[in-house]
Write a protein that binds this DNA or RNA. Structure first.
Length: 540
RNA sequence: GCGGGGUUAGUUAAAUGGUAUAACUUCAGUUUUCCAAACUGAUGUCAAGGGUUCGAUUCCCUUACCCCGCACCA
């Protein structure tokens, strides 16, 4: 029984290994920065990978934008005004202090606020109480901060500051606290004043004391042995412009949705859409994941395809159901193995607070059933956040539309697709692996070969009468005259090319070629003049 | 982030304190009348840095990266 389970585990790991290595070998996806040892969480797309990705994005755009009357495209900048991320809650939400247990063999780690919630406490309330009870209003100070502040009050050298920091609060893993402190010192600002403006930012200084004060124990090992909380910001910060003050800080967007919301007003003004209508965007997003894992599944740089569909509040259930169906349709059209797709109702507790209903579409990846796409009813949260309104033509009233958000990841779609279409079978005692892409998705539609490379009349015919016109028409057409014919078939199978066209000696007399089907290996003879329509029929 | 295991050619592996091997792949040629045939030849490798040593791919240290498990994933 246990052995059986281990075998299954091995098979699953093997499947991922095979897919990763095929992607590299055949020129789909490479590890990012590979010649310098790679950069975890990044991948570079090679020739066939780009083709595949473009096909998928085009297919999506065609279905959800071009073939509809109620959808408006947008391609917003990745860098946005810092205020966008403050308004959306990402600056606070993506910078949660984390705390971990120091006990040997425990390794428990949790977001600080969640740890408090688990003990039926609110972090913010506890913090305020603590501050009030411990100090008089005028001298709010963490002991640690006071020590630190004294030490760096008149520092001469930069490395001395760094050492002081490290001594005091295990600063090496802290991402942004150092900048905050140096900023305060240079500008002679009292941090107490700053705390009053933005408590969350400075809560950090006393959070460790707070954990001790409330005698919070580790849920895993039941000991009171926590390290100082550390900040993990999921957003990549960057400086815009030459002046390096805090007002110049912005972030690479951690989601594409905000790019849609900030363009809501302009889109309404430019196109005057009637409700319901949607805005769609395909673009990159960035998250500084602690542990990128599982090939394309969790990356630091990834691409999203998102729609925000604006509706009247009363209609939300109708359109939620509608978009659920549209998403399922698209997954099927793409060629996903629908037996591996599961719909999960996200329970209240795990849902973002503004969402009234969310479903996740999960997929049976070899490493477990994990989220593939999401569909969320976000109410009017986002438009309200950005103080946006809409004048409903029906009754000439100002209102805030509600939003249904279908959200799909390009990379996860591709990973799920690769897993769905990867197949192995045996032909004449030889194993072969191939990718069963649908013809309209496949990176190469067809490959053209002369049966024999050393017969100029075959090469000439294949090149000028078959390859050239097909290449001109479809673009995604390969020329393959390497090795023998069987070898070429295997190579094209691994790329997922649905049709292999071979020019042989009969072609020279009757102008027909053989077209070999990737999945069955069956061949049929097709007139050269009919090739174009033969392929068109199969990719429409 | 913790714990464990790793890093030798495109891939999978071998050997070694003193010239680094093989198979497959790739490329060129000969050949080949439909599913990885054969022959000949060619390209290509010790993750980075430091130390010990006459000499380090090998021993030691540091770093980076990869894999697995745990935790995390608003």
């Amino acid at each position: 029984m246990k052995e059986e389970k281990n075998n299954k585990e091995n098979d699953k790991n093997k499947l991922m290994e095979n897919i990763v290595s095929l992607c590299k070998r055949r020129g789909f996806i490479f590890q990012g920065s590979e010649i310098y040892g790679g950069l975890s969480g990044t991948y570079d797309w090679a020739h066939f990978g780009v083709a595949l990705k473009n096909n998928i994005k085009q297919n999506w755009w065609k279905k959800f934008v071009d073939s509809r009357r109620d959808m408006y495209g947008i391609d917003a900048a990745i860098l946005m005004n810092q205020k966008v991320w403050e308004a959306s809650g990402h600056v606070a939400g993506f910078a949660d202090p984390m705390i971990e247990c120091k006990s040997l063999d425990c390794g428990f780690r949790e977001r600080l606020d969640k740890l408090f919630e688990a003990s039926n406490l609110s972090l913010q309330d506890s913090y305020d109480l603590y501050i009030k009870s411990k100090f008089k209003e005028t001298e709010i100070k963490s002991k640690k901060f006071a020590e630190y502040y004294a030490k760096i009050k008149a520092p001469k050298e930069k490395d001395k500051i760094d050492r002081a920091l490290r001594d005091l609060i295990e600063i090496d893993a802290v991402l942004d606290i150092k900048d905050v402190l140096l900023d305060l010192r240079e500008n002679n600002i009292n941090w107490v004043d700053e705390y009053k403006k933005d408590p969350a930012k400075y809560m950090f200084f006393v959070a460790h004391d707070l954990v001790k004060e409330y005698k919070i124990v580790c849920p895993k090992c039941k000991k009171e042995n926590f390290a100082a909380p550390k900040n993990f910001n999921m957003m990549f910060a960057t400086k815009v412009g030459a002046v390096e003050d805090s007002s110049a800080t912005s972030y690479l967007r951690p989601e594409t949705a905000q790019g849609i919301f900030v363009n809501f007003k302009n889109t309404v003004d430019a196109f005057h859409p009637k409700l319901p209508f949607g805005m769609a965007q395909i673009g990159k997003a960035f998250r500084n994941e602690i542990t990128p894992r599982d090939f394309l599944f969790r990356q630091r740089e990834f691409e999203q395809m998102e729609i925000e569909y604006f509706i009247r509040p009363a209609d939300w259930e109708k359109y939620f159901e509608y978009w659920r169906g549209e998403m399922l349709d698209w997954m099927e059209e793409l060629g996903l193995d629908m037996a591996k797709v599961h719909e999960i109702d996200v329970p209240d507790a795990d849902r973002a607070h503004y969402s009234k209903k969310t479903i996740d579409f999960e997929f049976d990846f070899p490493f477990g059933q994990k989220e593939l796409f999401g569909l969320a009813y976000r109410t009017d949260f986002d438009l309200k956040t950005h103080k946006l309104e809409y004048i409903d033509e029906e009754n000439k009233e100002k209102m805030v539309p509600h939003v249904i958000e279908p959200s799909m990841g390009v990379d996860r779609a591709i990973l799920a697709l690769l897993i769905s279409v990867y197949a192995e079978d045996e032909k004449d005692g030889e194993m072969r692996s191939y990718l069963k892409f649908k013809p309209n998705i496949a990176p190469v539609i067809c490959a053209v070969s002369p049966l024999l490379k050393n017969k100029p009349e075959l090469v000439e015919y294949a090149n000028t009468r078959v390859y050239a016109p097909l290449k001109a028409e479809f673009g995604r057409v390969a020329w393959d005259d390497n090795g023998n014919i069987g070898k070429r078939y295997r190579r094209q199978d691994e790329i997922g090319t649905p049709f292999c066209i071979v020019v042989d000696f009969d072609t020279l007399t009757d102008d027909t070629v053989t077209v070999r089907d990737r999945d069955t290996g069956e061949q049929e003879r097709v007139k050269v003049e009919n090739l174009e329509s033969y392929i068109k029929e199969r990719i429409s």
